[in-house]
Simulated scan of single mutants.
Amino acid sequence: MSEISPLRRRMIDDMTIRNLSPATQRSYLHAVTKFSRYFGRSPDRLGLEDVRAFALRFFFGITLGHGEIPERIAYARTPAKLPTILSGDEIVRFLEAVPSLRTRTALTTAYAAGLRASEAVHLKVRNIDGERGIIRVEHGKGGKDRNVMLSAQLLAILRVYWRLARPEVWLFPGRDETKPIDVQVLYSACRSACAAAGIDKKVTVHTLRHSFATHLLESGTDIRIIQVLLGHNNLSTTARYTKVSDTLIRSTTSPLDRLTLEVVPPG
């Protein structure tokens, strides 16, 4: 294996300090590598004019599709599409099609609180505050902590889950109980549950998060509250300065409370 250059190592360290995800880091490194290879020089020896030239290459080669530039830049962004949303009935069918208690509870929590997959798997038992009606999400995207509402039905489900599974540190531990459940387990469960429930949509953990936000909007929840619950502070300039109190978060009803969900998988 070739040794990592000091410049590449510095970039990796800078991205790690800023809590960029591994996928984002790979994407950024790939882009810089393509930029460097195009000019045949180290990126620290390239300037603004080189950036402009590379951008023009992208414009003529990709945007205009000129055949005289055969090489295409990999991992180009696809056009933005509307996210897949599940109806309330589909949420129930989907979650009840997950046979594992631990995985079903993790996915139910992701929907009930609008969590990212990484946030759901990294929940700790101590993050569930039943008395205050709050779930504490630690080190979310961008390293930010936030509070989200703890659904009354979710609390009941978590109590049943806790009595049966007895998690100690991680709310959803992996096979090695000193580590959280692997996020790939959730992804795999989503694919299987979709097929089992007969849902003809591509459903991921993020689909549950999109559905959470959409269902809240449809029920009349203020968009500013939803922005805070999702940990989004860049949707608008106003959102950056909007602060929602814990009292308001506690009083916001999770969409899960409008559904009837079987807690323990049969069998």
Rank of each mutant, 00 (worst) to 15 (best):
K81C: 06
C190M: 12
K201V: 06
V121R: 01
R116L: 11
I73Q: 07
T103R: 05
V98Y: 04
Y187C: 15
V92T: 14
A112D: 03
C194V: 15
G140R: 05
H122E: 03
R163H: 05
L82P: 01
T207K: 05
R146S: 08
D145K: 10
L123C: 08
Q184M: 08
R191F: 09
L82K: 03
R126L: 08
A80Y: 04
K201S: 08
A197K: 02
P99N: 08
A156N: 05
R159Y: 00
T108S: 14
G174K: 02
R159T: 05
G114W: 03
P167T: 09
K81N: 06
W170N: 04
C190N: 11
E96N: 09
D182M: 05
A152M: 01
R163L: 04
K179P: 06
K144H: 06
R132N: 12
S100Y: 01
C190R: 13
L115K: 05
D176F: 03
V125W: 02
V125C: 13
E71S: 13
I85L: 15
A106V: 09
S118R: 04
P83K: 14
V137D: 10
T84Y: 03
A120T: 15
K81Q: 11
G198P: 00
A97E: 07
R159W: 01
N127Y: 02
A76L: 14
L115I: 09
P167M: 10
L154K: 05
S118L: 08
W162N: 11
N147T: 01
V98K: 04
K144F: 02
R126F: 01
T78P: 09
T78W: 01
A152N: 00
N127A: 12
I181D: 00
T204K: 03
R191E: 13
H206W: 10
V183T: 15
V148A: 06
T103Q: 09
I85W: 10
L82R: 13
L171Q: 03
V148Q: 05
